[in-house]
Design a protein around this nucleic acid. Structure first.
Length: 425
RNA sequence: GGAGGGAUGGCCGAGCGGUCUAAGGCGGUGGUCUUGAAAACCACUGUACGCUAGUCGUACCGCGGGUUCAAAUCCUGCUCCCUCCGCCA
């Protein structure tokens, strides 16, 4: 959410910046409603002042045993009027807040302008694509032949976009989770947390998933519970309505969670394989930083995510998303895309974003910059490190052999009983 | 699921419906003292909003309703926490 004071003074700029994202927002009536609210607050406060003063007077008169009936009758009217104004103000504020909740974050000035993913800017490319003496196959063929991925039974148990992992498939998924958590906790200094996999709607408003993107979520009927679409939601909300110590910043957390997405609106997209599932595993990095440091922290967070790919020997590139391709809450986003030889393309495996104070304002997460200074909102950041299912996909496709087996990357072997190769068994 | 108890400022904790909407303590900040530190003493110490910008005003005592001229205080619904019983991984 943007600062209401900022929006008030920069309505045109806000509309303009939103247009850079390819969105049109409706702020008609905002200024008028905002002015009305201000007027009403002035009115109600003077009435309340009158009531407070007169109440004391009534108390004095009663103590002196004199008749206060007239004042009491006056105040009866004043109180009724206060109640009336209070309802009007509440209505104004609700409407204003509703408007603001639908306004996306303003892209940082360093973000390239553009309309779609075609305008994203590649900032580096690391490693080399593997060379094959045969035509590399897509992971769904490799996994099915090795009998470690079972798409048919996944669909039977739950439906399309659900997959059953068998044996070394399940084993590798679990190894990847542990591998990633170990690297981030031991080498990068993140604290591990294991949050609830379900949150309430307030938490989802805090991160910006609600109220606008409810269709993307699985909601539990007749409750206020939602399956989390990413660990970002519960982990960012750890500190909702709290004041952090400046000396503790940046706070760096890492969490493994499954993620659940309805994928409404992506019918027909990536229907084969593990790429786009209703349920997938992810290891997520979350940072709470001071505003002065947040862009440094975005770069280091991205590097932390990249290191997983580097350690696994996977070829990848990093792109900065253009204004038209960024998520609603983000001020700047780097995507990491891994090379998938079976599909001859780069695919997103991580998305690292700085939300600046957008989420912190929604979730009310503050800190005191220095003793006696005013409270300020922190900056929040997060990034996948990595999407586990897609990492497994990348390993299957990049380490596939002509005989259908798959070599286990060196770095992963200690987490897999030092197995070197997955073969059909 | 049943019965009972509770929620107050960064933390602990007091608060007869009307001498301020908050005692007291801890913590924090500044100062005195000290070579320095500790201790001691003194002072200050919540958030948000408003304007006539002040030794100003208004709101906030889990959240929402209600009663009242007036609610931290009374009534009510909800949320969360604690204790006991039952069930259960």
């Amino acid at each position: 959410m943007l600062d209401i004071n900022f929006v008030r003074e920069n309505i045109e700029a806000v509309i303009e910046k939103t247009r850079l994202r390819g969105l049109e927002i409706d702020l008609n009536g905002f200024a008028q409603l905002d002015a009305e609210r201000k007027q009403l607050i002035g009115d109600i406060e003077s009435l309340r002042h009158k009531r407070n003063v007169t109440s004391e007077e009534i108390a004095r008169m009663k103590k002196a045993k004199s008749d206060a009936t007239e004042l009491v009758n006056d105040m009866r009217l004043v109180s009724a009027r206060i109640k009336e104004l209070d309802e009007k103000i509440k209505h104004c504020e609700l409407t204003l807040r509703e408007m603001l909740l639908f306004v996306p974050n303003i892209p940082n000035s360093s973000v390239p302008k553009g309309r779609s993913s075609d305008d994203n800017v590649e900032i580096r490319r690391v490693g080399k694509p593997p060379e094959f003496a045969f035509a590399p196959r897509p992971h769904w063929e490799i996994g099915t032949d090795l009998q470690i991925l079972d798409f048919e039974r996944g669909a039977k148990i739950a439906g399309s976009r659900f997959t059953l992992y068998w044996k070394m498939g399940a084993r590798m998924e679990r190894a990847l989770i542990n591998f990633m958590l170990d690297i981030h906790t031991h080498r990068h200094g993140y604290q591990e947390v294991l949050p609830p996999f379900i949150t309430n709607s307030t938490s989802l408003v805090g991160t910006g998933n609600l109220p606008k993107f409810g269709e993307d979520l699985f909601k539990i009927e007749k409750t206020d519970y939602y399956l989390i679409p990413t660990a970002e939601v519960p982990v960012t909300n750890i500190y909702r309505d709290e004041i952090l110590n400046a000396a503790d910043l940046p706070i760096k957390l890492v969490a493994y969670t499954p993620c659940f997405r309805s994928e409404a609106g992506s019918w027909g997209k990536d229907t084969r394989g593990l790429i786009r599932q209703h349920q997938f595993n992810k290891v997520e990095l979350v940072k709470f930083a001071s505003p002065a440091d947040s862009y440094i922290e975005l770069e280091s967070l991205t590097k932390d995510a990249e290191e997983i790919l580097a350690l696994l020997g996977l070829h990848y590139r990093v792109v900065t998303l253009c204004t038209g391709d960024m998520g609603f809450s983000s001020a700047k986003t780097h995507d990491i895309e891994v090379w998938l030889p079976g599909q001859n393309t780069f695919r997103e495996i991580s998305s690292c974003s700085n939300f600046e104070d957008f989420q912190a304002r929604r979730a009310n997460i503050k800190y005191r910059p220095s003793a006696n200074a005013k409270l300020e909102f922190v900056h929040t950041l997060n990034g996948s490190a990595l999407a586990v299912g897609r990492t497994l996909v990348a390993i299957l496709e990049n380490y596939q052999q002509e005989d259908g087996s798959v070599i286990v990357p060196d770095a992963l072997r200690p987490h897999m009983d030092n197995i070197e190769r997955i073969t059909k068994s």
